[in-house]
Design a protein around this nucleic acid. Structure first.
Lengths: 147, 147
DNA sequence: CTCAATTGAATTGTGTGCAATATACTTGAG
DNA sequence: CTCAAGTATATTGCACACAATTCAATTGAG
């Protein structure tokens, strides 16, 4: 008694809901591992970037994380309060705010090094399937971004 | 110069970040389509459930959406304000709140019927790959849920 | 050189997520 | 029958996301 279109409106059939739920559940798994580091998942993402590139500005960080200043400014202020990063305005262009990893922030990297492997083990899924999942997510992102 | 563990700490190699970004981007695509219906994506998810089952309580809805009352109560109050659902306490057990689809809420279903197909087209990805993506997300969710 | 347009960040406001707590109600062991 | 334990929902508080706006600083066309 459902039209073809209406049938697609079933929650369990929607890819987006699966993606949405899996993403939240995965972040929840990270939460337990990040609690000892006193980091939230988005803060951990920012630290990941800084561990690779210890200095960059808010715009550059936003481009890597796909987040805007409305999200990043308060997040970075919290990281600053914890002593993990410093925020200083550029001398050359005072609109720009440089984010720098502090020594304390650098030290935190060692405590995070086990996390990716732990999450991988918790997923209890074949590496190959996870790689394929990642690849499909990246492609989906690109397709939607391109619109 | 990176240890094996440290190499995993590269943002672009992390499945979770791909999942996280793809999920947010997909919700953003929904946002444009849902704007004419005056619904947010989580509100749309709640409506999807109600279009299948026009009456249920908060706990049942939470089990379907994997959300708790802290999220659902304000969300459902907003749907009530829009006239899409009613919220009434059970006579038998006054702790229970029944959520019912209103006539206006029912009418909204027709306006949403095109959305799944539109999103599918915007993804510009093969149906088979999307199905596989959904399946992997569902599996990942289950594995993490089972811990 | 000048001012309109642009840019980078911050601010504001709305709406989730979710942990923790509170509250009211129901149930069941004794 | 009673009260301790459990249950369903609501409330509170914190941290994102993100659109919209503001503001200060820079840039570039004429």
């Amino acid at each position: 008694m459902m039209t073809e279109h209406e049938d697609y409106l079933v929650l369990e059939k929607q890819l987006c809901f699966s993606l949405y739920s899996a993403s939240h559940r995965l972040v929840r798994s990270y939460r337990l591992l990040l609690e000892p580091l006193d980091l939230t998942y988005p803060q951990y993402l920012a630290m990941l970037v800084l561990w690779q590139q210890p200095e960059l500005n808010v715009k550059e960080l936003g481009e890597k994380l796909y987040l805007d200043s409305g999200t990043l400014t308060p997040l970075l202020k919290r990281l600053e309060t914890k002593g993990l990063v410093s925020r200083t305005r550029s001398q050359q262009d005072e609109r720009v705010v440089h984010i720098r990893l502090t020594e304390q922030g650098q030290l935190l990297k060692a405590q995070a090094s086990h996390i990716p492997k732990t999450i991988f083990q918790q997923s209890a899924m074949p590496l190959e399937q996870l790689q394929q999942l990642k690849h499909s997510c990246d492609l989906l992102f690109q397709q939607l971004e391109a619109l």
